[in-house]
């Protein structure tokens, strides 16, 4: 909270208190550093292991730095590691994820913006009920929709396709995107909309001329949130994809759990880093917005 700085204390006591305070600060930083080590450990292990040779991994210790760093396992992981019987590395699946994430993020964000706008500034009868219904949809355990979704995708001719996965992610992302935009638009003064209406502006004119230009901060939060969620998804990916259309998380799991041949830990670790790199980069560059999305999902105003 704040440091206790009591200026009125007598001189002798002040120095002793000063020593105690320095010691406490030291302890504080030590604790924080220990926790930093705890959180960074898995990432560190992944990074150093991916740079070692298999011989060195077997001989050496988990946390030691590589004697001679090499990117061979990265190349193997990217282009020739085996996931089951397919040995094309992570590359095709990485692009599957990209092809799935881009349209899914775009569509769900756009729909969320329009919904949020309509539900916050054009309050028609039932608007709150509709919002509550959509919001509850974010929290359901997705196991409850897996079976009917598999059948529906089959009926739509989308079984095992990337298009099917895009549909799934848009539908189950709508609740959150609508929540983000609604809670953001609620803070825009009603008078602004009233004045525009008096000037004869309609629903879409107001949206594109007034709301959208005010939206970049919430668009960034929503896009980052959706990107992270969809890129990291495993349950839908493993349930609704087939051999050629798996997203990168599913392919990674297959590579790591592949039982044929020698276990190549360095390749596993390199593959894991590659699969996690996009979200990690986004997080490092725009963590502030990620955190905002994370907390918006749990504390509503």
């Amino acid at each position: 909270m704040t440091d206790a700085t009591l200026t009125s204390a007598p001189a002798g006591r002040a120095t002793r208190r000063g020593i105690v305070r320095v010691a406490l600060r030291g302890l504080l930083y030590l604790l924080l550093a220990l926790f930093v080590a705890y959180y960074i450990l898995p990432l560190f292990v992944m990074a150093v292991t991916s740079l070692k040779s298999l011989d060195e991994i077997r001989a050496g210790s988990l946390m030691s730095l590589p004697d001679s760093a090499s990117l061979v396992s990265w190349a193997t992981a990217w282009s020739s590691a085996c996931a089951g019987i397919q040995c094309e590395g992570l590359q095709p699946f990485f692009w599957n994820s990209v092809k799935m994430v881009v349209p899914a993020v775009f569509l769900s964000t756009f729909l969320g913006a329009v919904n949020g706008y309509a539900l916050s500034h054009w309050r028609f009868r039932g608007a709150n009920l509709i919002f509550a219904l959509m919001l509850f949809g974010c929290f359901i355990p997705f196991q409850v929709v897996l079976l009917p979704m598999a059948r529906t995708l089959g009926l739509l001719g989308l079984a095992g396709s990337l298009g099917g996965l895009v549909l799934v992610h848009v539908v189950y992302g709508l609740g959150f995107t609508t929540l983000f935009f609604r809670n953001y638009y609620v803070t825009i003064p009603v008078e602004l909309v009233k004045a525009a209406k008096i000037d004869g502006a309609g629903f879409f004119t107001i949206f594109f001329r007034i709301f959208l230009p005010l939206s970049p901060p919430i668009i960034v939060v929503t896009v980052i949130w959706q990107f992270t969620q969809i890129w990291n998804d495993f349950l839908f990916g493993v349930s609704f994809s087939q051999a050629g259309t798996q997203p990168v998380t599913v392919a990674l799991n297959n590579i790591v759990n592949s039982t044929t041949g020698v276990k190549e830990y360095n390749v596993d670790m390199a593959a894991a880093i590659i699969a996690g790199l996009p979200t990690l980069i986004v997080y490092v560059l725009a963590g502030k917005y990620f955190i905002r999305g994370l907390t918006a999902g749990s504390v509503k105003g």
């Binding site: 898995p42 990432l43 992944m46 992270t228 890129w231 990291n232 998804d233 495993f234 998380t249 990674l252 799991n253 790591v256 596993d268 670790m269 593959a271 894991a272 880093i273 699969a275 996690g276 979200t279 990690l280 986004v282 997080y283 963590g287 990620f290």
Partner: peptide, 9 residues
């Protein structure tokens, strides 16, 4: 921010 499929490895 990372999938546990990644860090679980």
């Amino acid at each position: 921010a990372l999938s546990f499929i990644v860090t679980g490895t």
